[in-house]
Each structure stands twice: as C-alpha cells, then as structure tokens.
Design a binder for these strands. Sequence first.
DNA 1: GCAAATTTGTCCGTATGTATC
DNA 2: AGATACATACGGACAAATTTG
Lengths: 248, 248
Amino acid sequence: MRQGATRPIAPEPKVARQPLRQEVVDGIKSYILRYKLRPGDPLPSEPALCEALGASRSSVREAIRILAALDIVEVRHGHGTYVGRLSLSALVESLAFRGLLSPDDDFQVLSDLIDVRELFERGMAERLVRDLGDEEADRLQGFVDMMRKAGDGKGPGFIDADRSFHTLLIAPLGNDLIGQLSAAFWDVYAIVAPHLDVLTHEHGAATVANHQRIVDAVRARDSAEFSAALTEHYGPVRRRIAEARARR
Amino acid sequence: MRQGATRPIAPEPKVARQPLRQEVVDGIKSYILRYKLRPGDPLPSEPALCEALGASRSSVREAIRILAALDIVEVRHGHGTYVGRLSLSALVESLAFRGLLSPDDDFQVLSDLIDVRELFERGMAERLVRDLGDEEADRLQGFVDMMRKAGDGKGPGFIDADRSFHTLLIAPLGNDLIGQLSAAFWDVYAIVAPHLDVLTHEHGAATVANHQRIVDAVRARDSAEFSAALTEHYGPVRRRIAEARARR
DNA sequence: GCAAATTTGTCCGTATGTATC
DNA sequence: AGATACATACGGACAAATTTG
C-alpha cells in the first residue's frame, strides 16, 4: 500500500475515497470547532497534527495552505499556526483575478461590483438615515474633509478616506456581512480598475462634492435625498467604466 | 544556502522576502494571464512548473493548493491541472465555517445572510418585474409546482426547486455577481442552518403559497406586490432563526 | 483487456530560515 | 549568544488515477 503510515485497513474498493489532504482539512476544522477556538488561538504544530491525523507533513502542510487561503487558519513563520480571522480575503483574491482574466468583458465585473455596492447603500437608505446619528455624521464629515484636503484624488490619503467613508456609512446596519462584502468589493475595484485603465477618482473636486451631499442628506434625515445623492455619486463611476470600455 | 536549486544570488538580507510559494502563486497567475487562458484550459504539469519557476515540487504543489482553494485552478488526479471555474466556492467555504464557529452569535450570521438575499431581490424589484417575461414566469411556476408536489419541504426535490426558483428570479438582472452571491448565500444557509437546529422549510404548504404569490406578482407586473410577497416569504425564515436562537 | 506512459497524491529524510526564551 | 521550537524548502521514492497504444 502506501509507504509507511497506517491507514484504515479496508481499501473500500469502489468508494472513490477523497484525498487524504481533504481529510486533514476536515480534521483541522473539526478540531477548531470541537475546542471552540477563537481567531488568534494557537493550533497544534505540524508534527503534532501529523501524528493526530495520521498523515505526513506534506499532506498536513497542503491542508494548512488550503485553510490559510480561506483565512480559516493563519501561519506565522517560525512561530506557529493559529485560527484565522475568517475575513473575506479569499473573495477579494478570487474576484480580483476574475476581473483581470475576464476575456471579452473585463468591464462587466467592475460594473457588477458597483451595482452591488450601490444596492447595499441605496437599498438600506431608510435604515441608514434613521440610524446614522450626529456623531457618525461628524465622522463622515471628517473623511470628506480629508478627501478635500488630499485634493486631486490620486494620493493614498484620498483613497483611504473614500474607503473609510463607505465603510462607516453602512456600519450602523449592524450587518457584518454587508459591511465586509462592501469593503471587499471596494478592494477588488481598487485592484482591478487600474489594470483596465479605468481612472479611479478622476475629478477630485466633483467626488468630494458628491460625498458632501451624502453627508448633508444624513444630517437632514432625508432618505430620498440620500438615495439621490448616491445615484449622483455612482453615476460618474459607471461613466468612467463605460469610457474605458469604449476605448477598447 | 538552500540545498540544490539556484536562486538569485543576492540574499537581500533585510528585505524580508515573501515565501517562495507565494512567488509561485503569482507566477502561475501571471502564466494564466499572459497566455489569456480560459477556465478549463490545461496548465503545465508539476515538473514543468518546477523547472519554469525554479521551485521544488513541494512549493509548486502548495501554491497549486492555494489556487485550487480559490477556484483559480482545478486539479484532476492522474490527469492534470487546469484553469478553474473562478466560482465563489471559497466564499461558501469561508462563510459556512464562520457560521459554524461563531460563538455567542451563531445565528447572526444566518440573519445577515437572509438580509442580503432579501435586499438583492427587493432592491431590484422594479427591474425584476420589468425584465421577467411570461416565459420566465412559466419556469418559475414550474419550480413552484415541483415544490408543491414534493410536499413536506424536506425532500431534496423541494430544496432544489427552492434554490432554482431564487436563482432564476434574479437571473434577468444580467449581473453574474449578484446571481452567484445569492446562490452562494443560499448554499451557506443550507449548510449552516441544520447544524444550529434551524428548521429549513418547516411548513411546506405555507412556503409554497409564498412562492406562488411571488410568481403571481411577476405575472401582474406589480413591483409593490412583488416586494410585499418577498417580505412575506422571508418573514418566516427570520422567525425560524429567532426561534432557534431562543431555544439556546 | 492489458501494459506502458503520464500526471497527481503521499511519504520520508534532511537542511535552512525565523522567532522566542 | 545560545538553545529550542517552529515553519519553509529541497529531493527522491513510491502509490494511485487516467489516458493511450
């Protein structure tokens, strides 16, 4: 059979067994669940996992790589393996590559992305203007001021402020999934757009004005105006995508 | 230095180089992009990649495992390695595990999922009733009939019909991202809910009636009624989650 | 149907880089 | 600085799946 290790004797001829690596993946998952570990908690070392799960280092390491790609596990070289943050980093990686690969319609991916982000914010308009208080409005205003100060819309300060603005905007929903998806899509857009010659934040001044209008709508508790401001905000983004598509 | 292979001579002492495996990941990505490969296209064999990228087989294999976890690459034992389908399977894996792990609030994850699915369908109500033609309505009706025939709401026929129903419902948007996200969330719900003693499709008859109401709204081109029917549909789902939470 | 060739799956032993104490 | 524990990486060998002659 195999070289050294002991595996369940019965070959189970017709069962089409899954790769051992996958059993190790499931075993590590079960371990985390069984002991109710939290992100950051340490996992057994590789040799310990080998013995516990009856697999070689290679199989254990490949399993760990899979789990690390999903952010279920986090590896620190020379230190150890830990439960991961369970972020949506895998989604970002996957979507970003899809955006770069997509053949005829590179731009459809970006367009779809923007649709979802706008849907999140416009679809929750009523709840957002209701739950965004004065304190949150002040913080939103702070990001708008940062954008205005950063100026042309190309510096990292501008980009970061824009990301923070939209993150904070949907935070009051208390729906972590929407918040993380929205942030993930923002990241994917920031990765893919430059490769497709889509200008990001072309006109700094206009972008700042659009964000200001959103803040004003929040302060006025006017969900209709809030929705309108969002439409005004995402319109230019779509236009830039369409222009880049036309250039091809 | 290392055992056999040749690597760039300069050790670059303080640069904190990234792991070789990551370079291999990037190398394979670049290969796919450079030759504009499509899903299903074959990739070089492992030995070929080792030589091309100057890495050992272990490193190449770990890199492939990462890319396979993201569905950027697909591996068939004894056959070869191919460009993957770029699905959102990684999102499903990641979110499903989060739902199982989540400590105090296992149910918040499910609740968030349902919020997003309802947001997709309700937020696009106008476009959906406009773009869903009679042909699509007939197909939706077919799934409702399947659910009615399957009866109690527990059999696989019922489940599959429900999934197909919602997939078809948002298909006319022409937004693949929304469609795949919605399907992914449906899958995550189906994986996580049973583990939390959340009954899925408790009352078959009521569920069928709610879906029927949605089809009727589509036929009537009544977006307000369409929205109302969706609220009626997702209400019981939320109630079941709340009940299960209360039982804890 | 069988055997060979190709490709991925798994194992082992060893050496190196990294972080902690 | 040294010792220890850990992950990273290498190379070779054999096992299992698939295709092909």
